[in-house]
Simulated assay, not measured.
Amino acid sequence: MEIKNILENGADYFLSNLSIDLVIIGYKDNKLKCLLLQLGEKWVLPGGYIKLEESVDNAVTRILKERTLLNEPHFKFLSVFGNEDRKFTDEFKQYFDRNGLEWSNDYWINNRFVTLAYYSLVDIENTHPIPGEFDDAVAWFDFDDLPEMWLDHKTIATTARNRLKEDVQKEHLTYNLLPDEFTMPELHRLHQTVLNEKLDRSRFQKKILSTGIFERLPKLKKETPGSNPYQYRLKE
């Protein structure tokens, strides 16, 4: 859909006053990363709208695929955010003025939006970020060094980071941040990063292997001299 049609007739295609925001989380160099889009002088989370005849889950999958090119992206519901003044009027108007486009206060995107927030764990090396129609740039940022963000988007990102720390203590999720094949030392380092604490390596490995959800591959991975850990992958 071209921008003009979306702006003038978007209410005919999408649910009114309801949006989806995504905290897309990656992992690189022992750091958790957050994918952000630049909108003018600040940054926002990737997001989109729900089509009139589309389930919320299908909308999340579609938007994630559009933003990352991943076919079966992981995602998990985070929370609902909806302050009474939650609208992007000034931000969108700045974009239009900067690009010499005609702005109208009657555009449906000028309304207040309640957002359904989700977080998604991705293999950063297999993710190919795509900026949207209104975005000036796309980039990964460390959660410890997030830039200035519009509205409540930094709050949403921080909430997702904290929720991930809680969730990994109740269920196995972190492997989604790694390639399909990984070693136990790699998973151990990642888990420590997510929890921000030291974990006994031997105890961690025994606990993970006792779940039976991973299968050991016959080939060894050469990491350092004298270190040849087995690779694992999620059982099909």
Rank of each mutant, 00 (worst) to 15 (best):
I25Y: 05
L18V: 11
D136C: 02
R203I: 15
E91A: 13
L187F: 14
V138L: 08
L195E: 08
R201D: 10
R86P: 02
Q94E: 14
G226I: 01
P229C: 01
H188W: 15
D142R: 06
Q205T: 14
T174C: 10
E66V: 03
G226K: 02
T127Y: 03
N111E: 10
F77Q: 12
K165D: 07
M149V: 04
M184F: 09
K33D: 02
D180G: 10
L116T: 02
K222R: 13
H172P: 00
T193I: 12
Y95P: 00
K222D: 15
D90I: 00
K207F: 08
E84Q: 14
D167E: 15
L195R: 02
Q94A: 13
F77G: 09
K4L: 11
Y13N: 09
Q192P: 02
G100I: 03
L64P: 02
T193G: 09
V56F: 12
D200K: 03
T127P: 02
V80F: 15
R86Q: 14
W140G: 04
L220D: 12
E2D: 15
R98I: 01
Q192V: 01
V138E: 09
N126T: 05
G132P: 01
L199Q: 08
K222I: 12
N17G: 05
T158R: 10
T115L: 05
F204C: 04
T127F: 02
H191N: 12
K76I: 11
L220C: 06
K222Q: 13
L39F: 13
L32P: 00
K198T: 14
F214A: 03
S227A: 12
V168R: 10
E125G: 11
Q94C: 08
L101S: 09
V23L: 03
N58D: 15
A157L: 02
I20L: 12
G26C: 03
R112G: 07
K235A: 13
R189F: 10
Y49K: 08
Y175N: 03
L35Y: 10
L164W: 04
D57M: 05
L22E: 07
N58Y: 11
I156N: 01
T183A: 04
D85Y: 14
N58L: 13
P225T: 04
K28C: 11
N5R: 12
A11W: 08
I50G: 02
H172T: 11
L64H: 05
F77D: 09
C34P: 01
Y119P: 00
N196I: 00
G82I: 05
